[in-house]
Simulated assay, not measured.
Amino acid sequence: MLLAPTVSAAADDAGRHGVFTLEGFPFWAVYVIAFCIVMARAQATYWLGRGVARGMGGTRVAHLLASPRAVQVVDRIHRWGPPAVTVSFLTVGVQTIVNLAAGYLRMPFPRYLVALFVGCLLWAAIWTTVGTAVVYGAILLFLLHPAALAAAAVLAAGAVAWLLHRRRHRSRRAEPAPHAAGVATEQH
């Protein structure tokens, strides 16, 4: 079988270098690189937010910050400040808007930097351990059973779609209908 040497070579490589390495780089080097990448990316997003606040009013970024979802995040930043920046690094898909909002709201840079530093430490730890293990697991699953990897990807996408649908449905039920809101105010 053609895949047998590839699978055994992948297993030998993982055994020789360890799961939390990339092509023989030690864990600490991968961690430091991941930390530097996320630190640079998050700061660039923060400074982009500061630029938007300075007067780039008609751009796509300014329109993004005017969206209802972004307004909610901005309110949370006002309320929670730097801890929101740190916690955003434990989520998927929220950290960019939080860093952008922190810049847009002109969060003082020293406070932001402390929160960012802790968040980047956490992010690098998560992605250089769990993230690397998931990537290696997906590669090994692809080499052994490509159909199983495709099925797992479809199931994961379906679960995400279902969760998003449920969330939207719940938020629609929570909002009062325009007619019902008008009737309620007329009765008072």
Rank of each mutant, 00 (worst) to 15 (best):
R76S: 08
G131I: 07
G131K: 13
L105V: 06
V92D: 11
A174E: 07
F25K: 14
L122C: 15
A151P: 05
P26C: 01
A159P: 10
A66D: 13
L113H: 10
P68T: 15
P110A: 09
Y31K: 15
H169C: 06
G158T: 09
A153R: 11
E186V: 14
V114P: 11
G55L: 02
F25G: 11
V98S: 03
L122W: 05
D75P: 02
R79C: 12
G119A: 03
A11Q: 08
H169Y: 03
V38M: 12
V38F: 11
V73T: 15
G182N: 14
I33M: 10
R69Y: 09
I126E: 10
V73W: 15
L65D: 03
S171Q: 11
D13G: 08
H179N: 12
A124P: 06
G93V: 14
A84K: 11
F27Y: 15
A101C: 03
A180I: 04
P68L: 05
T6A: 12
V98L: 15
P176R: 14
G51V: 02
A4E: 08
M1P: 00
V61I: 04
D12T: 10
L155A: 10
G182E: 15
D13H: 13
L155M: 01
A29P: 02
G81D: 03
M107L: 06
W123R: 12
A150M: 04
L149D: 01
V130I: 12
Y136W: 12
E23P: 04
R41S: 12
F142P: 09
V74E: 09
V73M: 15
V19T: 01
L140W: 05
